[in-house]
């Protein structure tokens, strides 16, 4: 890509992933630009989670490449990961900690320190609406709040791209509405990639759709 040319935020080229003999993703190519909420739609077992795991550096690819804001996720993993906030399907939470302690760890791991860390933690706590539960143990929180804590950790470090893997699965209808409106709000300031196997949900939230 030329230097004067506008780079895409995420560029996936000829991505293939095998689990042993099983082909999970075959020759997948797409580009995602800056801004907007992108829906990543596909039936169960289509390879959405595998693709997201590769895009975030959690999995290797059997073939192909992934660039995040121009950084190769395999060759320049650290720089690429700084551009991404990721919420896997099961929020990766430490149950014995409070949201505040958990967010402090994630923030520090993302390179935030001192006042900047404190300010960002307070900002994401406000943004995700977990002020009331920030001092409670995560094990004592409802699934909806746990999902919000998971989204809060993804927002720390102010990454350009937020990747959410089926964030509304297992939530009750009110929690689903709340999480959807939160994702829409995030789409104003970040590129959000949101996976789902429910067409109506993707239609309700997303500006653009990728079908796998």
């Amino acid at each position: 890509m030329g230097s004067g040319e506008r780079q895409s935020m995420i560029s996936v080229e000829h991505l293939t992933k095998y689990y042993g003999e099983y082909l999970a993703v075959e020759d997948l190519t797409f580009e995602i630009g800056e801004g907007h909420v992108y829906g990543f739609l596909g039936p169960n077992g289509a390879g959405k989670t595998t693709t997201m795991n590769i895009m975030t550096g959690c999995l290797s690819a059997s073939a192909g490449s992934v660039h995040i804001d121009g950084h190769d996720i395999f060759e320049e993993a650290e720089a690429a990961k700084k551009c991404i906030g990721y919420l896997p399907e099961q929020p990766p939470l430490y149950m014995s900690e409070t949201p505040l302690e958990y967010l402090r760890f994630v923030g520090e791991a993302k390179g935030l320190r001192g006042q900047a860390l404190t300010e960002q933690i307070q900002a994401v706590i406000r943004q995700t609406g977990i002020e009331a539960v920030q001092g409670r143990r995560i094990s004592a929180l409802s699934k909806g709040y746990r999902q919000r804590v998971g989204i809060a950790q993804a927002l720390l470090g102010n990454p350009k791209t937020i990747i959410l893997d089926e964030p509304t699965v297992g939530l009750d209808p009110i929690q689903i509405i709340e999480i959807r409106s939160l994702i829409k709000e995030l789409g104003r300031s970040h590129t959000v990639v949101f996976s789902s196997h429910i067409l109506s949900e993707v239609h309700a939230i997303c500006d653009r759709i990728l079908i796998i």
């Binding site: 795991n53 550096g57 993993a77 650290e78 990766p92 939470l93 390179g111």
Partner: peptide
């Protein structure tokens, strides 16, 4: 077991 290894993999640390 808690699947928090996914978080460690996705963080910008080696």
């Amino acid at each position: 077991r808690q699947k928090t290894d996914q978080l460690l993999c996705a963080l910008p640390i080696t």
